[in-house]
Computed example of a mutant assay.
Amino acid sequence: MIIDVHGHIISAEAAERAPMPRSLVDVEGMIEAKAAAGIELTIVGSPSGARTMAPADRFAGYRQPFGYQQPFDQLRALHDWLGETVQTWWRNLRAYVYCDVFGDERSVAAAAETLREPGFVGLIANFSADAEYLDSPRADDFFAMAEEAGVPILLHAGPMPASCRDIANYGLLEIFGRPCDATLGLAALVLSGRLERHPSLNFISANSGGAFSLFADRIDWAVRPRHWDDRTTQNRGEDDAAGAPVPELHRTASSLRPSELAGRLYVDTTFDHPSLHEANLRLLGARHIVFGTDAPPIPVKFEDKIQAVRDLPIGEAEAEDILAGNALRLFDLTDFLEARASAEERRVPAGG
């Protein structure tokens, strides 16, 4: 069994309204291609709600505001379509509810209501918007709602990450800017104190966490920066450190070490570089990595993606955890297992 926790689809109506890759509307084609490789279930959602991921002014004749607020009826229509599509493809699909992290009370309440509908098993939200990350107080309502809902949250870059507003080249933004947004977004989340205040929440990072795991040995510096110690000895102990006063800008809302909190995060397998996966293994362990392809819209050779997991320096049981076990544990997929077992029974003759 293989479960893909990171896929995207969109209705034909939404695709006509905004510039989007056409692969997003081919739901049946996606299911067939994945099934041929052994991927039985995909959890799908939109990281931009009913809007396109393309920034406001990158397509002639199309405009959308920088702010993440969007027409309420369009978002409701998207979730209605997602729910209906999951019901049609119950053996193959589950869905995320999109929620604007910095949205008003009405939008957060609407996301909570949609989560109670059949087929929705998690939230999809953005690392940042405009000039704000997840440490912003404006995200308080989102975190309270997510904790009450008790579902996993896929964190995904949005159309205009906070760190990318001045990037003019869309290829640079799309291919490099969004993974950088994941790196900064996870760091902001860890340093915000939210993981300590909401210990039951499970966050899955798209883009394999960006470069976050590569910075893991430095994240505690954000609280106690070594370069502000002006003593010359290189062998001092941490408790013996003394030097210039640490600027007030170096602060965290958590009483725990950021490096301790970082180990609670989850990442997907979007990226293909084995060195990044191995860095994630060292930081998080195999039980905190979930199989995700970002397909569609990303064109993927699914067999190669699966083999890349099996080629990691881990045992077979750990590989199976990444491919399916961790997702089964994180998401409430009892109904999927029941449907799968029922289908197996219909395929096996009585007494066979």
Rank of each mutant, 00 (worst) to 15 (best):
Gln70Val: 00
Gly7Thr: 13
Ala12Met: 08
Ala188Val: 02
Ala216Lys: 04
Gly210Gln: 05
Thr52Gln: 01
Pro313Ala: 07
Glu196Ile: 01
Thr334Gly: 15
Leu312Ile: 09
Gly351Ala: 10
Leu337Val: 09
Arg282Val: 10
Arg106Ser: 14
Asp229Ala: 08
Phe215Gly: 02
Glu147Ala: 11
Ala60Lys: 14
Glu32Lys: 15
Ala222Leu: 15
Arg165Gly: 09
Ala286Leu: 09
Ser107Arg: 08
Ser163Pro: 01
Ala60Asn: 15
Gly285His: 11
Glu238Ile: 13
Ser259Arg: 11
Arg197Gly: 00
Ser48Thr: 07
Glu40Asn: 12
Asn202Gly: 00
Ala18Asn: 07
His273Pro: 01
Met53His: 07
Leu328Pro: 03
Leu283Asp: 03
Pro19Ser: 09
Glu16Lys: 13
Tyr96Arg: 06
Ile31Thr: 06
Arg282Asn: 12
Ala216Ser: 15
Ala56Tyr: 03
Ser213Cys: 14
Leu155Asn: 02
Asp4Asn: 13
Tyr68Gly: 02
Glu196Gly: 08
Glu316Lys: 10
Asn202Pro: 01
Asp268Phe: 05
Arg231Val: 08
Ala77Pro: 02
Gly171Met: 12
Glu16Val: 00
Ala216Gly: 01
Phe66Asp: 14
Asn280Trp: 01
Asn235Leu: 08
Asp57Lys: 09
Ala14Asn: 01
Asp141Ile: 00
Ala262Leu: 12
Trp228Pro: 08
Ser192Glu: 03
Leu82Trp: 08
Gln234Gly: 09
Ala253Leu: 10
Ala308Met: 12
Gly237Tyr: 00
Ala35Phe: 03
Gly67Gln: 07
Gly122His: 05
Pro349Ile: 10
Leu201Pro: 03
Asp166Asn: 14
Thr293Met: 14
Thr269Ile: 13
Phe336Glu: 04
Val290Gln: 05
Ile39Pro: 02
Glu248Trp: 08
Ala242His: 11
Ala162Met: 06
Phe72Asp: 13
Arg58Leu: 05
Thr85Ala: 05
Phe336Ala: 10
Leu75Asp: 00
Met20Arg: 09
Ala242Pro: 00
Phe143Pro: 05
Pro225Lys: 05
Ile39Asn: 04
Phe215Leu: 14
Val5Trp: 00
Gly7His: 06
Tyr266Arg: 06
Asp240His: 07
Ser107Tyr: 03
Arg340Thr: 07
Gly210Met: 07
Gly325Val: 11
Asp294Asn: 12
Ser163Tyr: 00
Ala343Thr: 06
Pro21Ile: 10
Met53Pro: 00
Ile3Met: 11
Asp135Lys: 00
